[in-house]
Nucleic acid binder design. Structure first.
Lengths: 232, 232
DNA sequence: GCGGATCTTGATGGTTTCTTGATGCAAACA
DNA sequence: TGTTTGCATCAAGAAACCATCAAGATCCGC
């Protein structure tokens, strides 16, 4: 049985940020629990499985990436990582390990809560009906069984690569997907460094699916990291 | 001038019974093909998918049940099993595996033909989307039970392969069907890579069914993927 | 075996899609 | 504010794919 308010585990060593997160989450109706170190965080996650985890990558006792890896070994709970400026590499590595989203310090309350909402919604959806044949995001519709794509109820023709790229984004709607992940999924592991492919094909998809390709509403760029399909 | 008469595969080791079946089926307007052993039968079914199969359970080289199981692995073609008196257990097992009907030796011609008619009619019905024996798409009409095809209310003659290809598309109208799927359904799993067959036969079908074969309205190409029958 | 219909196979030209490079713009950083 | 890095866009060549025609090969009933 799930309690009414989602349980959120904070793994963060700096007391200041812990207090800030605690206050923000409580105020928004969540139930935060805290852990100061990676080991404590893992113990908490194991004994009291949370609905989402906020994980600081800069922990004193162990690498934040290692924490993420160990959690992913047995759980698919949404993980939002916190990174300091200039920790781009760790951030991307965490997302590649299966983290769902990231926040760069300093960040605002609104941003934090928005990310948590998306993560929780996404988790609920994928737990529910996973083998969906038709996926809908806003006024985009992808019929996986018939292999057809619609925007605002008019069919859009996609090439094979465009279709594969879109379906990978749709299957992980709301989540940040790294360049490497998308390239591996669509073009195969051998092309994991051809980021240029992604640029060209994202541009093509935007022209076919967005009302205004230069101000995308669905196909969002995460600079230095990858892309994300907006969830609503 | 041969209509697309149903192809019936006989898997039977005893020459006497084979000759009897051959004569009875030919006389009734079917096209029988023969296999003496289980292995040969599977090979035949794979390279030249029949519309129904008559399978003797008492084969010398392999268990008739195993033959049925392997055919059911990729096809839902009707299977009528022949069993000797006292083989009740095998008969029931075969029906459990998905065989459609059975005949106990000795049996008469009338009984045999009745079972085949039932099996073919049943296949035509259940394979259609809503149990419809007649499917209509635009001004195309396919009567699965009677094996007749009409375009704008005039009958069109199709060769057996053309008919099989069209019915496969009709049964999944609106869906994109991959080359491999169509080839497996129509030419059998052994020919899953012969995409050239598809090109030739799609061209033939277009000439017979489309108003303008170079601008198809029903039989649509999905480049790099397969083909699709428009559903509206 | 013969003639007709059907299926298979090969060759050719046209079209779509993918890849690649060049260029300008936007965001991050000092 | 200038510099650097990363991103968007466009276009052209290369590659993959498709349509079509036609000539053998095969199968069928007679």
């Amino acid at each position: 049985m799930v309690e009414a308010s989602p349980l959120i585990l904070i793994i963060e060593d700096e007391p200041q940020i812990r207090r800030f997160l605690q206050a923000a989450l409580t105020g928004a109706g969540y139930r935060p629990i805290e852990a100061e170190t990676g080991k404590m965080g893992l113990a908490q996650a194991a004994t009291q499985p949370p609905d989402a985890i906020i994980l600081d990558l800069g922990l004193p006792d162990m690498d934040g990436l290692e924490v993420a890896r160990q959690i992913r070994a047995w759980s698919s709970v949404p993980i939002i990582v916190l990174s300091a400026r200039g920790q781009e590499k760790d951030k991307v590595a965490a997302l590649d390990l299966g983290a769902d989203d990231y926040l760069t310090k300093p960040f605002g309350v609104g941003e934090l809560l928005a990310r948590i909402r998306v993560a929780l919604r996404h988790a609920a959806r994928t737990e529910g009906e996973d083998g969906q044949a038709v996926m809908v995001v806003g006024d985009l519709k992808v019929d996986l069984a018939a292999r057809r794509v619609f925007r605002a109820d008019t069919e859009v023709h996609l090439t094979p690569m465009e279709y594969r790229l879109l379906t990978t984004l749709v299957k992980h709607a709301g989540k940040v997907l790294t360049h490497a992940f998308l390239l591996k999924e669509v073009w195969g592991p051998a092309n994991a460094r051809e980021t240029h492919y992604l640029r060209v094909f994202m541009a093509n998809l935007r022209h076919k699916l967005e009302a205004d390709a230069s101000r995308p509403r669905y196909l969002l760029t995460e600079q230095g990291v990858g892309y994300r399909l907006a969830d609503e």
